[in-house]
């Protein structure tokens, strides 16, 4: 029985509160406060650079949901997610299964190589890839032409039809190492005796995989899918440095849209922080909704 009063408990734990304080202040300043403020900003007609801000209620939201570019970017973000996550999950799994073989002497080397793009600065990758996919003698086109796979250079990043698949491909390349590491962690949790027992029972080949190994790694799969899905919605640096949303907005995902309306003044228009915040809030809520949905699904699957 705990007979200590609440104030005594709090007093006894005074050092605990002192210890959580520094981290809490930082999180408060740079995460919690900004979340609250973006809700407030979204109700303002405000350029962000003057003190003048007019309260206009939900007008920004109204404008956003009636903007064609907004919905194009919104949908494009999900196309990006559905186009990259399954590829990463499957490809990462296949590679992990191979590299999980002790016998494969070079496995650590291959693992390092595949992980290398992960540690490379994303902005640099975006910029380097504009070289690699350049239609003017870029290495990708050079390779395709020297092997006769194509007769004329392809303008990967300049053509509205090829730009999104190209960026998605680069995204998969950049982050596949992480997916592979997740899968390796999952496969390492399968106990050796499970394999041995399965072998004795005569389970081999695909039956071993479907009946023994997949059920064990499935809970991991759900966490991996969740992390990957949210990750695939945060692709600002790669797209900004590769295409900045172009050509003709054909690779503009939600984060680029927000950045463009908030900060970019190239087109001669005033930056509109209030409006960008409204788009951001709408977007944040959508992402949260997906996260919660997946979280519920995860809990259900784990309980079974």
């Amino acid at each position: 029985m705990n007979k200590k009063s609440l104030s005594k408990q709090i007093y006894d734990a005074r050092w605990c509160y002192v210890f959580v304080l520094p981290c809490l202040i930082l999180t408060g300043m740079f995460v919690i406060y900004p979340i609250g403020m973006s809700w407030y900003f979204s109700l303002l007609d405000w350029s962000g650079f003057t003190k003048e801000a007019k309260f206009i209620g939900l007008q920004n939201y109204y404008e956003a949901v009636n903007d064609e570019f907004f919905w194009d970017a919104f949908i494009r973000s999900f196309i990006f997610m559905f186009g990259t996550v399954p590829v990463k999950i499957v490809l990462g799994f296949i590679i992990a299964v191979f590299l999980n073989n002790q016998v494969l002497k070079l496995a650590p080397f291959f693992r390092t190589v595949i992980f290398m793009p992960v540690v490379t600065a994303i902005a640099i990758i975006g910029i380097v890839m504009t070289f690699v996919f350049s239609p003017f003698n870029g290495p990708a086109n050079k390779f395709l032409m020297s092997t006769n796979l194509t007769s004329a250079p392809i303008d990967f990043l300049g053509n509205p039809d090829t730009v999104l698949p190209t960026v998605m491909g680069v995204y998969v390349w950049k982050w596949l190492g992480i997916t592979m590491m997740y899968w390796l962690a999952a496969l390492q949790t399968v106990p050796q005796d499970v394999y041995d027992a399965a072998k004795i029972d005569g389970a081999e080949g695909y039956r071993l995989w479907i009946h023994i190994i997949l059920p064990i790694v499935l809970p991991f799969a759900i966490v991996i899918i969740l992390v990957e899905a949210v990750g695939a919605l945060n692709v600002f640096p790669l797209i900004e440095t590769m295409t900045a949303g172009g050509p003709f907005f054909s690779s503009e995902v939600m984060e680029i849209y927000i950045f463009r309306t908030a900060f970019v003044t190239d087109s001669g228009t005033m930056p509109r922080l209030g409006y960008a915040c409204a788009a951001g809030v709408f977007w944040g809520v959508a992402v949260l909704f997906i996260t919660v949905l997946q979280g519920l699904w995860m809990r259900r699957t784990r309980r079974i």
Binding site: L6, V20, Y33, A276
Partner: peptide, 27 residues
């Protein structure tokens, strides 16, 4: 200690906040 669960709850709630969502107020 009292309040520990609330603290953990707040932290978990911030895991999936996209950076693009907080950047303008941080600026």
């Amino acid at each position: 200690f009292p309040g520990k669960k609330i603290l953990i709850g707040i932290l978990i709630g911030t895991i999936f906040i996209p950076q693009g969502y907080t950047i303008i107020p941080v600026f």
